[in-house]
Design a protein around this nucleic acid. Structure first.
Lengths: 190, 190
DNA sequence: CCTGAATGGAACACGCTTGTTCCAGTTCGG
DNA sequence: CCGAACTGGAACAAGCGTGTTCCATTCAGG
């Protein structure tokens, strides 16, 4: 609060470092602080000036990740329509998280630590959403909410990897992800 | 050949180290050689006696991984039945790979390096299997073989993680994986 | 112009992993 | 029983990432 607006450049530099950290750690979770500083076009000294220890930077990354995740969730309007349609919209929004997707998949504890108050992974209202899908017949009742969540994240991550490996277009990969997620969680005709 | 049967204990110790490496690296890819030696109940000196450099151990792990993978694939009889049924049997066999599953998912280059002669990931006959499924109507023709492969591995990995997090039984998790994979790759009623 | 904020480079100590050497204890077969 | 193979611990050097200090440079605003 008191020093947030000192010069404006402080906030800008800090954000550049956090953004670079998400990008670099998303592609290579074991990256060094030097790599992150280089990606942010900043000296390693400057990075330590903003985040004294590595844990401080990771904490800031976790906070930023939680914020972006919450924003994407809100934009998907998870309370509207059938459970399956809400899941579909969630996938579309989450897919745009890009590098953050890989980071959240490989280091789920990033978001868990700051939200230490809650018990399980990250389903405060997600469980309710899936159970709504169970009731309205749009989601296979045999699949527990936790498994549906695992399916979604693993397929989003698979899609992001598929995008990097093959030359497929972003749009085409999203189409594949949505198609297979729909099939996986949809109620069985049997 | 010449020194393979020197005492029998050499082969046994070597195998114990490779097995421990798969187990430890599967759970924590950044594990140190000391961790692996401890898991194998072997001194770090002994480990270096069998594998001079870290790369040598990783190479041996890659070879062992390829062997187990080939054995699992053969047991699934991928040439029999419909494409979807073959995929289902592959999932069942691969699921039993255990820690190797995590390792192959997080370090795909382990198997790729020794098999440097081939072009893409690991679909010599897998592509043919999926295309058989396209023709016999058991696999959604809109899904390319590479994407089907991505789906399978990501869901197997998700299942293994789900098994570790929740207290679900191995059998129950395999049931969930098979159900969602079937739904994901199956031809659409639309 | 001049002061203070912000930055980046150089250098250092510390801890960890890796790779090596040396030595003592154990085990197995002749 | 004896010797060779096998083993594990201790110690060491080298490399890398981390965290810190110090100093020179740049830039914006009074």
């Amino acid at each position: 609060m008191t020093d947030a607006q000192v010069s404006g450049s402080r906030a800008r530099t800090r954000q550049a470092i956090v953004d670079a950290a998400i990008e670099v750690l998303g592609r290579h979770p074991a990256a060094s602080l030097g790599d992150i500083a280089a990606a942010a076009d900043v000296g390693r000294t400057t990075l330590h000036r903003y985040f004294a220890e590595r844990a401080d930077l990771l904490s800031a990354v976790g906070t930023e990740a939680a914020a972006r995740l919450a924003r994407a969730t809100a934009q998907a309007r998870p309370a509207e329509g059938t459970g399956a349609s809400a899941v579909r919209r969630l996938c579309q929004e989450y897919f745009d998280l890009g590098d953050l997707l890989s980071l959240l998949f490989s280091e789920p504890e990033l978001c868990a630590v700051p939200t230490a108050g809650e018990a399980e992974g990250c389903d405060p209202e997600f469980t309710a959403l899936v159970e709504r899908g169970h009731r309205d017949g749009s989601i296979d009742p045999e699949l527990p909410a936790g498994w549906v969540q695992s399916i979604i994240w693993s397929q989003l991550y698979a899609g992001w990897s598929y995008l990097a490996e093959t030359g497929a277009s972003r749009h085409e990969v999203l189409r594949l992800v949505l198609r297979t997620v729909d099939g996986a969680i949809g109620a069985r005709p049997t």
